[in-house]
């Protein structure tokens, strides 16, 4: 939240442009974690919700899942993979730098209750979003199994944090550098074969992985929830960029989701809709690198 006057009003804790980066760490070569001052959001955040941030005046608005929040310290923790221009810019920021805008908490919280036996399956940077859900499910009394996947060992994140909160922890890597060699879906299959009677499955990661999990649980009728990650601009229901098809109906991931019934979701459409802007992403990154992030004098 950003405030444009000094007067102290009720409910407002932050002072002007207060979203300072308090801590920063590298979780893997491309995945970074930051803890940012955002007291109002920290007070309200719930598992499954996200924020939309904008670093500077020329920057995009991007959604990032809330990973942790601490209302006493007034901070929120975000994890991101440096894939596009904004995440690269974010990765270049240091402790003490401020993020211009953070709006949140957005989206509906996960529906957390005691289901019984829960699996939380995640792939890549999706593990960041899965962690608070696994923690909340465990706190609600579920026996919780976590299955984490990554391309290789160096890309695994939050391993210890998850181990600390769940009852059973499994790893799979595409190249076999740690844990099972293959995909998280293989691990889920084998657990089901071992008579794990899951009451709920959460799957968060690349759409192709969420689709695979959804196909495994479908024949067993296991309630499966996915957190969808379409493109977003405002994140508040205004633009419709994030529209997804759920059971043949158009829904907005930002206000109707981001969590949906996996067996109703149209993953093919989501995958296609995510392919719109990569060429422009590349133009933006190249332009930014060529012009030293806009600090050179040539362009204005």
């Amino acid at each position: 939240m950003q405030i444009h006057q000094t007067e102290n009003s009720p409910l407002i804790k932050a002072s002007t442009s207060s979203h300072t980066i308090l801590e920063k760490s590298d979780l893997s070569p491309q995945v970074k974690q930051i803890r940012v001052y955002a007291p109002e959001i920290a007070e309200k955040a719930k598992a499954g919700q996200f924020v939309i941030l904008r670093i500077c005046d020329e920057c995009e608005r991007i959604p990032l899942t809330l990973v942790e929040w601490d209302s006493e310290q007034g901070s929120i923790t975000l994890i991101f993979q440096e894939v596009g221009l904004t995440t690269k810019k974010l990765g270049n920021m240091e402790v003490g730098d401020t993020i211009l805008n953070i709006a949140g908490p957005l989206g509906n919280p996960s529906i957390i209750r005691n289901y019984g036996l829960a699996a939380v399956i995640s792939g890549g940077v999706g593990t960041a979003a899965a962690y608070p859900i696994a923690k909340a499910l465990k706190d609600a009394g579920n026996t919780t199994v976590s299955i984490v996947g990554a391309r290789n060992q160096s890309l695994l994140i939050l391993e210890q944090e998850l181990r600390d909160v769940v009852d059973e922890f499994c790893i799979s890597t595409d190249d076999g550098s740690k844990g099972h060699k293959g995909f998280v879906s293989d691990v889920l299959k084998s657990l089901i074969a071992k008579k794990y009677a899951f009451d709920i499955v959460y799957a968060i990661g690349p759409p192709i992985m969420m689709k695979a999990i959804s196909e495994i649980t479908r024949p067993y009728g296991i309630k499966t929830v996915v957190s969808l990650n379409p493109l977003m601009v405002d994140g508040m229901g205004m633009c419709g960029a994030c529209r997804v098809s759920i059971g043949g109906q158009t829904k907005f991931a930002c206000i109707d989701g981001p969590e949906f019934d996996a067996h109703e979701a149209n993953f093919e459409e989501l995958i296609k809709r995510l392919r719109v802007y990569p060429p422009e992403e590349k133009i933006a990154v190249d332009f930014h690198e060529k012009h030293k992030g806009g600090t050179c004098k040539c362009r204005r």
Partner: peptide, 24 residues
């Protein structure tokens, strides 16, 4: 003298009830 708070989605960040109970 109007104070403007951006990035504040009422309904998520604060509810109307909270606004009324906290001094507005």
């Amino acid at each position: 003298g109007v104070e403007v708070c951006t990035d504040a989605l009422v309904g998520k960040l604060f509810t109307v009830e909270e606004l009324l109970n906290s001094g507005f």
